[in-house]
Amino acid sequence: MRFRHGRTPRLGRSWRPGRGLVIIPIAMIAAITVIDINSPTTIHLGPFLVAAPAITASFAGPTLTGAIGALAVAAQVVIGHLHGGLMTPNHQAQIAALVVISVFVTLFRYLRSRHERQLGQVRSVSVATQQVLMRPLPRRIGPLWIASAYLAAEAEAEIGGDLYAAVPAVRATRLVIGDVRGKGLPAINEAALLVGAFRGSAYRNLPLPGIVAHLGNSVYWNIVHFAEGEPEHEESFVTALVLDIHEDAPCISMVNCGHPPPLLLRDGSVRSLEVREPALPLGLSATSESEYEVETFRFEAGDLLLLYTDGVIEARDRAGTFYPLTERITGWNGSGPQSLVRHLHGDLLQHAGGTLGDDAAMIAIARSR
């Protein structure tokens, strides 16, 4: 797990382990050859030469591994020639065994290198997909400072079923954070659909209930028309939180569709922004604007707002204890969205033992003074 939206380190020339470590198997071959030649004929150290290509395969590619294997075979031939001749059964058996083992080690290294290249291609596609669907939120939008993080639960994945996005609204910044039921490609498909619908509707300047109804109907329409006969799609829905952070008033307007409530940090205390009647998750049925109620909360300069998905609060440690988010924020001594997200990112992974059971996303927002 990594901090997905951190700063990418600058690439440059770096020392490759293979360039220096190749001295080890070469020195091993030379040492075994010299010692064996100068030892009595009853002592055979040639079988130890097999360690040279085996060690090389741990840090080098198939070409260098094969070259070291050939060098080891050549050394075994020299030892056999000087210790009784190449036609003795013992030396012939040692040479044949070394050839076979070197070939197998080189072959396995080739297959591993091919798998690593394929995995690298998959990861590059995953990163490109993330950049398109889950673009990092800007650190500054108007009077707001923002930090975000995404942790995918799937091995080697960059994105999953959690989502977030931000668009401009009338004298406000509009944000959505959501969690698609399920995992894998179906969840990614639903997340992409909802993020696309959210961004595509920005120019329409819909009121908050209108945008929520639009998102819910987009998900429901997709399920009805494209998920027939696919149970993993038909049972899909999205919990979501859609909110406007106003620029001309110290408050936020919010519609909660079955999503975990945000947390507000003010003067060292933490408050959960609970709505009176949360709406149903998106995608369960067709909806209209009148079905959603907007609630308003104070959000003043100096406050810190944390949005998150249930992958954060449902992360368990080895004893099965859920991550105590409110408690960990209360004991936090830093300041600013970047510091909070960085703290929660590391603390969450430490609590879960480095592996999450579900995707997790978080956004911290502060209003400048």
Results as ranks from 00 to 15, higher is better:
251 C>R: 14
223 I>M: 12
278 P>I: 06
212 V>Q: 00
204 R>H: 11
59 F>M: 11
166 A>E: 09
318 R>I: 10
281 P>E: 03
21 L>H: 10
24 I>Y: 09
124 S>K: 13
105 V>W: 05
7 R>V: 14
76 Q>C: 12
329 I>W: 04
139 R>N: 10
141 I>K: 01
75 A>F: 01
11 L>H: 13
339 S>R: 07
5 H>V: 06
215 L>A: 04
132 V>L: 14
335 S>D: 15
183 K>V: 07
29 I>Q: 03
220 Y>V: 05
234 E>A: 15
34 V>N: 04
248 D>Y: 10
311 G>I: 02
128 A>S: 12
115 H>Y: 10
38 N>G: 14
165 A>S: 13
312 V>W: 04
210 G>V: 13
258 G>T: 10
332 W>G: 03
369 R>D: 14
113 S>M: 12
152 A>R: 01
293 E>H: 11
321 T>W: 09
7 R>E: 10
157 A>S: 15
271 R>G: 02
325 L>N: 03
319 A>P: 01
51 A>G: 08
203 Y>Q: 11
128 A>P: 03
280 L>T: 10
121 Q>W: 09
303 D>V: 14
183 K>C: 06
320 G>Q: 11
63 T>V: 14
319 A>C: 08
129 T>F: 11
149 A>N: 14
112 R>G: 08
164 Y>E: 07
